[in-house]
Simulated scan of single mutants.
Amino acid sequence: MHEMSIAMAVVGQVEEAAGAGGASAVTAVRLEVGELAGVVPDSLAFCFELACAGTVLEGARLVTETVAARARCGHCGREWPTGMPPELCCPGCARATDVELLSGRELRILTVDWEDGPVPGAARTREPISEEG
């Protein structure tokens, strides 16, 4: 199930941004997922919850926004929703040789909500103890 690798990649990127931003906890992640991205939202949500365990994202809410697939015919210029499975033959001129997919493959992080402050329970850096004395 590739949703787990996607979830782990999202968690890794958000962890990095949250650490750089001084976040104590991430509360929500909003993703844009194209209709043709090959991602099952329920599976992604399940995997996201598992991937968040033990991280600054633990307990974060995942919100996915689906982007409809659209195409444009290079011959006649008509645009249409491709649907799923995708219909890539132009409904205007019936050509399928010059079709451009405009949307539907997206998979990106749109927003991350977090709380500022030190991470609860984080180990503090201590000065090394000298062996001399």
Rank of each mutant, 00 (worst) to 15 (best):
C89P: 09
G38Y: 03
A17M: 15
E32M: 10
C89L: 15
Q13T: 11
R30F: 01
C52L: 00
T64S: 14
V26Y: 00
G12Q: 15
T66F: 00
E132T: 10
V33I: 15
A96M: 09
P120C: 02
M84R: 14
E79A: 08
A60W: 00
E49G: 11
S24F: 01
E132P: 00
G77L: 10
G22T: 01
G12F: 09
T66N: 10
E79Y: 06
M1N: 13
E58W: 04
S43C: 14
T125S: 10
A53N: 06
H75M: 09
E132K: 10
E49V: 11
E65M: 07
R72T: 01
C47W: 04
G59K: 07
A45G: 09
G19E: 04
V56Y: 07
C93A: 01
A69D: 13
G34F: 11
E87A: 14
T64A: 15
G21D: 08
V63D: 14
A37Y: 09
P86A: 01
C73N: 05
T55M: 01
M1R: 15
V11D: 08
V29S: 01
R105W: 14
V67S: 07
V29T: 10
R70K: 07
R124E: 13
S103V: 02
I6Y: 08
T82Q: 08
E49F: 08
S103Q: 04
V99T: 11
E115L: 14
T64I: 12
L31I: 05
A68Y: 01
L44N: 02
T97G: 14
E79P: 00
P81F: 08
A7I: 07
V29Q: 04
I129C: 09
M4C: 05
S5T: 13
T27G: 12
T64C: 14
E65N: 11
L102C: 06
G117L: 04
R61L: 11
D116P: 02
E32R: 14
V14P: 06
C47E: 02
L88G: 05
L101D: 11
